[in-house]
């Protein structure tokens, strides 16, 4: 029975990776029509820098991701601190309010942003997308930093205070250094959320300013070109590296103490 279960598990994992593997393999296939037999070629990767649209879209995606990571972390970390460490009325309500960005289908939030930004003159484009991406990343940052805070012990700050630290100094000399891995993990998370964000970017993009996922989408709708495989493979690789980095940091920053 157990072996059946494990076999099933492996089949599921194979299922999860099959199409991805196919796509990656095809990125290295010389045939422009995805035809077998397989012939190894790096042509499609080489062609990428010539594709103006893809290049500019990639650049936008990267810039957006970096800006989102910085802003979302800078805004989300203080909020997470306040929610975790301070008791006040309305705290649960505020925690609840962090759910809409991730719980509401992005289709709805994306279109709502489109409507609102258009009406208020913010319009579309990079600025609008920044607003959207950061908003979507904030709940994740709060969650990641919050988890890091929870596994920290409050008596460390008390110990610091008993030794003469003001609360502020205790925060900076004890809590913050220990929180750093979580903060970095949160930034990585925000980066990944922005990089992979499609729906909201789709609605806030203009013909001249798009992000990589949006470009890939239009390219798919128009027809297949293996360049999409190539860029998708790169994007996939980047996402995976980010996730691994995040996983490593989370494990390190968390319960490292052996007590």
């Amino acid at each position: 029975m157990k072996r059946l279960g494990l076999a099933h598990l492996w089949v599921v994992i194979a299922f999860l990776y099959l199409p991805i593997a196919v796509m990656v393999v095809m990125a290295f296939n010389a045939s422009p029509l995805y035809q077998l037999p397989f012939e190894f070629s790096l042509d499609w990767f080489a062609k990428l820098p010539d594709n103006e649209r893809l290049l500019s879209a990639s650049g936008n995606s990267l810039i957006l991701a970096v800006v989102t990571a910085i802003l979302a972390t800078a805004i989300g970390t203080p909020a997470s601190l306040a929610l975790s460490r301070r008791k006040f009325r309305g705290r649960s309500l505020l925690q609840l309010l962090l759910l809409p960005p991730i719980a509401i289908p992005w289709l709805i939030t994306g279109t709502a942003m489109l409507v609102f930004f258009f009406s208020t003159g913010i319009g579309r484009g990079l600025f609008a997308m920044t607003i959207g991406h950061v908003a979507l990343a904030i709940p994740y940052v709060v969650l990641v930093v919050g988890t890091g805070l929870q596994s920290q012990r409050a008596d460390l700050e008390e110990a610091a205070m008993s030794l003469g630290s003001t609360p502020l100094h205790a925060f900076f000399s004890v809590t913050l250094p220990l929180l750093l891995p979580s903060i970095i993990a949160a930034a990585l998370f925000a980066f990944a959320v922005s990089l992979d964000q499609f729906v909201v970017s789709y609605f806030l993009a203009t013909p001249g300013v798009t992000t990589l996922p949006v470009e890939i989408y239009s390219a798919i709708r128009k027809g297949f070109t293996p360049e999409i495989n190539a860029i998708s493979t790169i994007l996939l690789g980047a996402s995976m590296v980010l996730v691994l980095a995040f996983a490593l940091l989370s494990n390190m920053g968390g319960a490292r103490e052996r007590r």
Binding site: P213, I228, L235
Partner: peptide, 24 residues
């Protein structure tokens, strides 16, 4: 390791994954 393997695709670009199904 298995846990990570299962979660990993999830955090990659959804669009890319859907596209990969067209390949298949």
């Amino acid at each position: 390791v298995l846990f990570l393997l299962i979660i990993l695709p999830f955090w990659t670009n959804g669009l890319v994954r859907v596209f990969s199904w067209t390949m298949v």
